[in-house]
Computed example of a mutant assay.
Amino acid sequence: MKIGIVSDTHMPSRGKVIPDALIQGLKDVELILHLGDWTQTEVIRAFEQLAPIDSVAGNNDGEEIIARFGRKKILNLGGFQIGMVHGDGMRKTTEARAWEAFKEEKTDVILFGHSHVPFLMKHEGVILFNPGSPTDKRRQPRYSYGILTLTDTIKAEHFYYDDKS
């Protein structure tokens, strides 16, 4: 199973359209997981044109997005437990907050966003993965998204591009 991982699109303030590089990168995914900060429900509909989606809401999402997706969840995909959370909060790093959100639950992967910083690390046997942002790179050199490939193992990869149009 090939899954697109996206976070922090902040559309339309940080991008008016889904970047072409992201559309091409998600062309053959079976599912898109978005880790929050859509900011507008119209953006959800645009991503649904690419592939089925699931998500969690971020700290910049309104009540409608929170009601639809919630703020934290675990999905069973391909026999793996995939934790999803935006990662916002006070104190600690974003990845530490993401880890703590699932410390009492069994997950194989924890997906999170919020920082806009691509991140990949294995901690106590669990993959922690932040795809970065496809539209708001902040202090990062490039825009980014992720692909999670589930076979008998889990492979998490970042993909980068320079032009968000």
Rank of each mutant, 00 (worst) to 15 (best):
Q49Y: 01
G113I: 13
P141M: 04
V29K: 14
Q24F: 09
G113Y: 06
D162H: 05
I127F: 15
H34F: 09
F47L: 10
D37S: 02
G78V: 02
Q40L: 02
M121C: 06
E48Q: 10
V43W: 01
Q81M: 13
S55M: 07
T41V: 07
R139L: 08
D163P: 00
E157T: 12
M84W: 06
F129C: 14
I110W: 08
V85L: 05
P134S: 10
D108L: 05
L120K: 15
H34C: 12
T135H: 06
M121I: 03
G36S: 12
R45C: 02
P12I: 00
I147V: 15
G83R: 07
P12C: 00
T151M: 02
T149I: 09
L22V: 07
Q40H: 08
T39D: 03
M11H: 09
V43T: 15
V17N: 12
S115F: 06
I23L: 13
I82A: 09
K2P: 06
D8H: 10
V6Q: 14
I82D: 13
V117N: 09
Y143D: 04
H86V: 05
G83T: 07
L77K: 11
S133V: 01
P141A: 05
N59T: 07
Q24L: 11
E124L: 01
I74G: 12
R91V: 00
W38Q: 01
A156P: 11
N130G: 03
G146I: 12
K72Y: 11
G78P: 00
Y160D: 14
D61K: 06
L50Q: 06
L77G: 04
G78R: 01
M84A: 15
P12G: 01
H114W: 05
K106F: 14
Y145D: 08
Q81F: 13
E157Q: 15
S7P: 03
R138A: 09
R14S: 15
